[in-house]
């Protein structure tokens, strides 16, 4: 039981770092992609958060970015093995294009997540990465919006991507 909890926590930390770093590097906090992301960002700023973190969260809602890419990589790795991650990258790219997004963040996030899951496949099974990605998205989108947006804004400022 304890070893399963430890695996789950390590997997969720790996997923969190992967999708936050890739999304911040490809400029999600800089500007809202569609007008709906701008509304969500302004609303989060009104309840006491950071505007750049708000844009980040709005962009995640409005388009399948590296967060969705990490989840899809874990799902396809669980069902099909390493080749599944490559198929997931193609499908996420098509989904990005349907949502008015150039698609760099989603595709490259899927490939990096597949490589990370492959490197960890000796001691963490892929289903822990599925649950870990759900925990990671819960800490961003579902736990406390103002605090999460402040954290994302400070990470974006540290990486120099605003």
């Amino acid at each position: 039981m304890e070893i399963e909890v430890i695996k789950l926590i390590i997997a969720s930390i790996i997923c969190w770092i992967n999708f936050v770093v890739v999304d911040t590097y490809f400029g999600l906090p800089k500007k809202p992609g569609v007008s709906g992301a701008e509304v969500i960002g302004k609303k989060i700023e009104k309840i006491g958060g950071n505007i750049n973190g708000g844009y980040f969260m709005g962009n995640i809602v409005c388009s399948p970015d590296a967060s969705a890419g990490t989840l899809m990589a874990a799902i396809f790795y669980y069902a099909m093995g390493f080749e599944g991650g490559l198929i997931a990258a193609l499908l996420i790219f098509i989904g990005n294009r349907l949502c008015n997004d150039p698609g760099y963040a989603g595709t490259i996030g899927t490939i990096t997540a597949t490589i990370l899951i492959y490197l960890c496949s000796g001691f963490i099974e892929p289903q822990y990465f599925i649950a870990g990605m759900v925990i990671a998205i819960f800490t961003i989108q579902g736990f406390h919006h103002a605090y999460a947006s402040k954290l994302l804004g400070s990470i974006a400022k540290k990486m120099g991507r605003i």
Partner: peptide
């Protein structure tokens, strides 16, 4: 580089499957 390599990888994986 950007969509070309990833489209080629995805299609090759589908063809292998």
């Amino acid at each position: 580089l950007f969509p070309t390599v990833f489209v080629a990888l995805g299609l090759t994986a589908i063809a292998e499957f």
